[in-house]
């Protein structure tokens, strides 16, 4: 028993070193741009670069639009399948998991060919079209996470009773979705949103091959030309991922049922069903 504990301690210590050393080294490296002293020079240079600000802004906009579109696509679909077509749930789950099976580079290759300038839907022919394609591609990439999060969230609330209660009060489809279902899975949507955010902000292949100036290609460019700035960017990216994942886990753990009774429509689910 004693020996196994020593082994376990050794394993955890080695793993912790492997996980933490690169982060510490990255931080120290990013602080050593000026010879002989620790300084925030690398960070100053990064923030002074207008391309950094542009790329970050563009990525932020893309990420937010992706999340909105993704939620708009997934919430009504997952709701409708659960309510009216429960037998199609495995099919929808399978479709939503496809982006994990198809490598992203293959997917974007398909887009470039499928939507090229001589196709029926020449999305890549114009700037706007390419932006739309990038966003829709990111919606596809984040589908596994968004769908899983929302579907799990819906399993936790009794959507059937909620729907019937709302219907008997005279609510229409849109009202039910927006004022009853959506508030009940808000925590799930947010948890899916944060992982989508992390994916979109760091994505490289789609943006690079569609020639979009997002954060990913900017990182690759800096990595080829600079020494200290990349580690400053990497450290910030890590903090960013950490924040997103932390927020995701926070929202994923929070059960909608535990929320206080604020919305009249939400109340039927919160009463224990006998």
């Amino acid at each position: 028993m004693k020996r196994s504990r020593i082994n376990a301690t050794a394993i955890v210590v080695v793993a912790a070193l492997f996980f933490v050393l690169p982060l510490v080294a990255t931080l120290l490296f990013s602080l050593s741009m000026k010879r002989g002293v620790w300084s925030l020079e690398a960070y100053r240079v990064v923030f002074a670069d207008s391309r950094f600000v542009d790329a970050l802004t563009y990525s932020l906009v893309v990420a937010i639009v992706t999340i909105l579109l993704g939620a708009l696509l997934v919430v009504p679909s997952a709701y409708w399948v659960r309510l009216r077509f429960p037998r199609l749930r495995p099919l929808f789950e399978f479709l939503s998991l496809l982006p994990l099976v198809i490598p992203p580079i293959v997917l974007v290759f398909g887009y470039i060919r499928f939507y090229n300038s001589s196709s029926i839907l020449p999305l890549t022919a114009s700037e706007t079209g390419t932006n739309v394609l990038l966003v829709l591609g990111y919606v596809a990439l984040s589908l596994p996470y968004m769908y899983r999060a929302v579907d799990t969230g819906m399993a936790a609330v009794d959507i059937r009773t909620l729907t019937e209660a709302a219907e008997s009060l005279g609510a229409g489809r849109r009202t039910i979705l927006m004022s009853v279902i959506f508030p009940n899975v808000r925590a799930s949507v947010l948890s899916g949103a944060f992982i989508t955010f992390a994916i979109v902000m760091g994505e490289f292949v789609f943006a690079s091959l569609l020639n979009r100036d997002t954060f990913g290609p900017y990182l690759a460019l800096i990595g080829q030309n600079r020494a200290y700035e990349p580690s400053a960017l990497a450290f910030m990216a890590f903090l960013f991922t950490w924040t997103c994942m932390g927020m995701m886990q926070l929202f994923a753990r929070r059960r909608p049922r535990r929320r206080r009774n604020r919305r009249p429509f939400a109340s039927p689910s919160e009463r224990p069903v006998a």
């Binding site: 080294a25 990255t26 760091g202 490289f204 990913g216 990182l219 960017l233 991922t241």
Partner: peptide, 8 residues
């Protein structure tokens, strides 16, 4: 993962 990991 991705590029930041390579930088690290």
């Amino acid at each position: 993962a991705g590029i930041p990991l390579a930088f690290a």
